[in-house]
């Protein structure tokens, strides 16, 4: 050892092993089980949508940083890849390629980079992309492939059908009773054997990924539990009031994007509150809004809108919910 080469820096001299990069790639890895299930049910086209979405999200981030902002690129930190995969998970497997590219562009360029990049965006970029596509191309965005109906990699000609929530919404508008609707069994909903966005269908796979993230302490339980708990509570209350008009809580949990939203979208650190109590309020808000939109709104599914609305409230929540400073008494 040479004394002249001693490193001198202020304390602390040790660091927790978690890094941003590690967190992002863990989230990515936790999404893989759901991707595998999706490929099983929707064929190679699920993989096509995912790869295209990831590729273009990463490329757009790279191009914007390299040529517009002229800064060093952060594509290796994994956040663009996670956004890409999450966006894909919110798309039907039959979506045309050019729409995927538009979605990726809106997610990264408008949803993320226009605010200053990672950490600065107020809204979940993948949801910004998704909602843009949903509003712009409502027909393509709600044509869901039936499981096992598409074999080709570019399986645009797959047979399509409505999602469970879509069927129920339409049925109720026609005055049908829920017991008279032909819904898939709870078992196939749990596994993911139903039409839907490619990543949201398998509650089981998403649950496994979510538990892995909780176990690795990448996310905390507060948002998922508050979100899903509120959704179950509201669904149960209305269902007990009128079981023929309001869906059972388990269907709310398994059909649609509740699991994906609660474990992977609402827990996005950048766009959720900093404190534990803030996260609980955020989760409850997501749950309430999801239920209200699904049940009383124009759209059959409300997870994306609920999370985006709550994203907008995050600065307010963070301002109001703060830990009490040690030894400071409120006057």
């Amino acid at each position: 050892m040479s004394v002249e080469q001693l490193t001198v820096s202020p304390s602390p001299h040790i660091k927790d092993s978690h890094t941003t990069k590690e967190i992002m790639w863990w989230v990515f890895a936790a999404l893989v089980p759901a991707l595998v299930v999706s490929v099983y049910f929707f064929g190679w086209s699920a993989l096509r949508v995912s790869l295209l979405s990831i590729f273009f999200c990463v490329i757009f981030e790279f191009l914007i940083q390299r040529f517009m902002l002229k800064v060093s690129t952060t594509i290796c930190d994994g956040s663009a890849a996670v956004t890409g995969l999450l966006l894909a998970f919110n798309l039907p497997s039959t979506l045309p390629t050019w729409m995927i590219i538009v979605g990726a562009f809106v997610a990264i360029a408008i949803g993320k980079m226009s605010f200053g990049g990672l950490g600065k965006n107020p809204f979940n970029p993948a949801l910004v992309g998704r909602v843009f596509l949903l509003i712009s191309f409502p027909v393509d965005m709600t044509s869901w492939a039936l499981p096992f109906s598409s074999e080709a990699f570019f399986g645009v000609d797959a047979k399509t059908g409505a999602t469970v929530l879509g069927m129920v919404k339409e049925g109720i508008m026609q005055g049908k009773l829920i017991s008279a609707m032909a819904l898939p069994s709870l078992k196939s909903m749990f596994a993911g054997n139903m039409p839907g966005s490619l990543g949201e269908v398998s509650a089981l796979a998403l649950f496994i990924g979510g538990i892995a993230l909780l176990f690795k302490r990448i996310i905390s339980w507060h948002i998922p539990v508050a979100f899903l708990g509120t959704l179950i509570f509201m669904a149960l209350s209305f269902n007990l009031y009128n079981g023929e008009r309001f869906l059972a809580p388990l269907i709310h949990l398994l059909a649609g994007g509740a699991m994906l939203g609660a474990f992977f979208m609402a827990t996005d650190m950048v766009t959720s509150p900093m404190t534990r109590w803030g996260q609980i309020i955020f989760g409850i808000g997501c749950g309430v809004l999801t239920y209200l939109i699904r049940t009383f709104g124009a759209y059959p599914e409300g997870v994306s809108f609920a999370i985006l609305i709550m994203n907008a409230l995050v600065p307010l929540i963070d301002k109001m919910i703060r830990p009490r400073p040690f030894g400071v008494v409120k006057k």
Binding site: H18, G119, M269, V270
Partner: peptide, 10 residues
């Protein structure tokens, strides 16, 4: 790198 607002410091 950029703060990702993870809240770990809090």
């Amino acid at each position: 790198s950029a703060c990702i607002r993870c809240g770990r410091c809090v």
